[in-house]
Amino acid sequence: MKEMTVNFSRRHFFEKSATAVAGLSIAPGVFLSQVAQAKPADQAVTIEKRWGMLIDAAKCATGCNDCVTACHEENGVTSHGRPETDAQWIRKVKLRDKATNHVISLPMMCQHCETAPCVYVCPTGASFKRADGIVLVDKHICIGCRYCMMACPYKARSFVHETVTDQVEYSPRGKGTVESCTLCVHRVDEGGTPACVEACNKAEHGAMIFGDLKDPNSAISIELEKHGGKQIRADLKLNTGVRYQGI
């Protein structure tokens, strides 16, 4: 295997281009889908990065389902026509403010909390948080007790209620285990962006930004500093990785 050497000039180029990228916040597709540096395959993830998402509910189109379709296609999440038991890694929610009658919509998925209740309650430790902040289910040791589903304040998790065949090769999923949004960890580890964010940009809504919350020059950090971002159920103080604007 070839040696991985960190190329310093490449790093500096990226820092400069990050500011340029932030200014291109309306430009679709290519630039925004590549905000992450590809991590070498043999390098472990560290706490130096924390992956997060920022979703602007004001830009989220009410009838649009592109993020949901993209996620489920990317990860091989198939529907069986049984909405109550079918897995959903991400869903669109349409809301009306009771005081003002204002209607908004937003996508809801695993919030990748810093102090995730699902991680606390898992008896085997299958539900865990990676060093870079992504909350995952280690399906090798998941016993399917569904306690994490009870504990999740966002109803982010799904239980696989039926036998799964023809899995997508980078997205193993099987009967009897619990699953949820992985922030497309298989893409992120290779420098890509989650499928939902990419689809939203392709549809030119630009409601979703993905990036490193610990990098003050990333697009997401700059946007958060400029216009802020709220957590859903902020009173629980879970410090979610997914923040929302316009709610």
């Binding site: 669109k92 929610v93 009771k98 809801m108």
Partner: peptide
């Protein structure tokens, strides 16, 4: 305790959700 919907959006009414947000579970 599970049937009662999770209160994720205080002051808001859920109009539509494919994952039964805001709805009493059956």
């Amino acid at each position: 305790g599970q049937a009662f919907p999770l209160e994720m959006f205080p002051g808001m009414e859920v109009l539509e959700s494919t994952f039964f947000d805001g709805a009493t579970a059956q």
